[in-house]
Design a protein around this nucleic acid. Structure first.
Length: 424
DNA sequence: ATGCTCCTGCGAA
DNA sequence: CTAACGTTCGCAGGAGCAT
C-alpha cells in the first residue's frame, strides 16, 4: 500500500519568501527563539556549509562575508501557512496524517501505481500555485521508506523532479541507491545510533537494510528493529488517526536575559502555565499534575549551575488557568534558590485525560466548577478575538524582562492587519 | 514474579 | 566592548517501589 510523504522545502525560509520575494535566490536563515540557532536554511546557506542548529553568534562572521539574511522565527506566520498547505493536501487523499508543521503522510492506496508520480507532481504544482510553498514528495510502501524517498527527491538522487517513487525502482537500482546514502539519513537513526552502527561496520542504508533484525534488537531496541523491517518494505508504523490528544503539554522558553529573583521567575512560570492551560483546554483535556523546572545557563560553564524540577499533583485534575498557575508557582517556591542567574524555566502539564471522563466522576463543588469553566471560556474567547495575550492574569507581570529576544522578526502578514506593510 | 510510576536517553522537526 | 547555543512531543527501558 503506497504512502506519500509530502515535505515543504526549507519551510520557514519558504514562508518568509512568500511575503518577501526579495529573499528569493539569496542566502537566508531563520533563527530559533531568542535568535539563538539556525533552524531553517535556504539552499544558498546550506551550500555555504551552515549546519542545522548552529548558534548564530558563531555564524555572524560568515554571514557578514556572504550577506546572509537572518530572521527571527515568526511562528504565527508559519502555523498559518502550514494550515493552508495541510488542508489542500487533505483533498488529495482520503487519509492524511499531519506529522509536523511542514510535512504529512498521505495514503495513496487506491491509486494505480504507475500514475502516482504524476499525481504527486500535480500536488506539488497545486501547493506552489495556491500557497507559494515548494514541496517534495517521497512515495514508498512504509513510512520509513517514504521518508527516505523524500530525502532522495530533495537531493535529486533518483533523477527525479521533486518526486521520488521507490515503487518504480528495480531491486538492483534500489540497492545501489541505498548503498550511496549514509545510515544517519534514515528516520529514527540519530547521532548516537549512527555512531554505534558505525562501530558495527554498518555505514550505509543498504547495510542497515540487510542487517540481522535480531542482532539489531539485541544491540539497540525494538524501535530500531522496526526501522530495519520498514526498510525492507514491511510496514510496522501505522498511519495514525487524526486528533489523538496529547499526553503532556510543555511550555518553556529561554530568557532574553538572565533572571535571579523569585518574583521574575514567578512571572515567567505563571505566563507559561497560562499558555499551557490554553493548549490544554483546546485539546479538551485536564491535567492531573504540574511539573515546574528552572535552570541556569549550561553554556556559561564558569557560572554556578543549578537546575531542579518538581511535580505538583492537583487536588483534582483541572484545566483552570488559576488553579494550574497556583500549582506551578507554589512548586517554584519550593525549588527556587537565591544566588543563581537563571536562563530558562518551564511548565509541563502531565497526566492528561479527556475532560468528559473526569466530569462524570465529579461530585463535589459543582457550582465552583461551573463558574471557573465559564470564566475560562470568556478568557479564551477574548484572547482568540482580540489577539493573543489581550487578557492575562496579573501574576504574569507587565515588564517581562525575561521575554525572549526576537530582533529580526518579519510582520504577521496573514493574521494582523496592523502589521501589513503599506505599498509604496 | 508482576505491575505500577518516575526518570532518563534518544530521536524528530 | 563582550557575550551571545531552541522547543515540544512520544517512546522505550531501567530503577525503584509496592504488592
Amino acid at each position: 500500500m503506497p504512502l506519500a510523504l509530502v515535505d515543504c522545502n526549507n519551510f520557514y525560509v519558504s514562508c518568509e519568501r512568500v511575503f518577501n520575494p526579495k529573499l528569493e535566490g539569496k542566502p537566508v536563515v531563520v533563527l530559533s527563539n531568542n535568535d539563538g540557532c539556525a533552524v531553517a536554511r535556504s539552499n544558498e546557506v546550506k551550500a555555504l556549509g551552515v549546519k542545522m542548529g548552529e548558534p548564530w553568534f558563531k555564524l555572524e562572521k560568515l554571514a557578514k562575508q556572504h550577506d546572509i539574511i537572518a530572521l527571527s522565527s515568526n511562528y504565527t506566520l508559519y502555523a498559518d501557512l502550514s494550515a493552508r498547505v495541510m488542508s489542500i493536501l487533505a483533498t488529495f487523499s482520503p487519509k492524511q496524517e499531519v506529522y509536523s508543521i511542514d510535512e504529512c503522510f498521505l495514503d495513496l492506496g487506491g491509486f494505480a501505481p504507475d500514475t502516482l508520480a504524476d499525481y504527486c507532481q500535480t500536488i506539488r504544482k497545486t501547493i506552489k500555485r495556491n500557497v507559494g510553498i515548494p514541496v517534495c514528495v517521497g512515495i514508498a510502501d512504509t513510512k520509513t521508506l517514504a521518508k527516505l524517498a523524500n530525502h532522495c527527491a530533495k537531493k535529486g538522487l533518483a533523477g527525479n523532479n521533486g518526486v521520488c517513487d521507490f515503487g518504480r525502482l528495480a531491486e538492483v537500482e534500489r540497492s545501489r541507491l541505498f548503498a550511496s546514502i549514509p545510515v544517519g539519513e534514515v528516520w529514527g537513526i540519530g547521532r548516537k545510533i549512527s555512531e554505534k552502527l558505525l562501530t558495527m561496520g554498518i555505514q550505509t542504508v543498504e547495510e542497515l537494510r540487510i542487517a540481522n533484525p535480531n542482532k539489531i534488537r539485541q544491540q539497540f531496541s525494538v524501535v530500531v528493529e522496526r526501522t530495519v523491517k520498514e526498510l525492507n518494505g514491511i510496514p510496522c508504523i501505522e498511519l495514525e488517526d487524526v486528533g489523538t490528544p496529547r499526553q503532556q503539554i510543555m511550555v518553556s522558553r529561554s530568557f532574553g536575559q538572565e533572571v535571579s529573583s523569585l518574583g521574575e521567575l514567578s512571572e515567567s512560570v505563571a505566563y507559561f502555565a497560562t499558555r499551557a492551560a490554553e493548549k490544554l483546554r483546546k485539546d479538551g483535556s485536564v491535567a492531573a499534575s504540574v511539573c515546574v523546572f528552572i535552570q541556569t545557563n549550561p553554556f556559561k560553564e564558569k557560572a554556578p549551575q543549578y537546575q531542579r524540577s518538581i511535580v505538583v499533583p492537583m487536588v483534582q485534575p483541572a484545566d483552570d488557568t488559576v488553579a494550574l498557575v497556583n500549582a506551578a508557582t507554589q512548586g517554584l517556591r519550593e525549588i527556587y534558590r537565591m544566588g543563581f542567574g537563571y536562563k530558562k524555566s518551564g511548565v509541563l502539564l502531565m497526566g492528561l485525560q479527556p475532560k468528559e471522563m473526569i466530569q462524570a466522576t465529579l461530585f463535589d463543588n459543582q457550582a465552583e466548577q461551573a463558574k471557573s469553566a465559564k470564566l475560562m471560556k470568556v478568557m479564551d474567547s477574548i484572547n482568540r478575538n482580540m489577539g493573543h495575550g489581550s487578557l492575562t492574569i496579573a501574576a504574569s507581570g507587565i515588564r517581562q524582562r525575561w521575554a525572549m529576544r526576537r530582533d529580526r522578526k518579519s510582520p504577521n502578514y496573514t493574521t494582523e492587519w496592523d502589521e501589513l506593510p503599506i505599498a509604496e
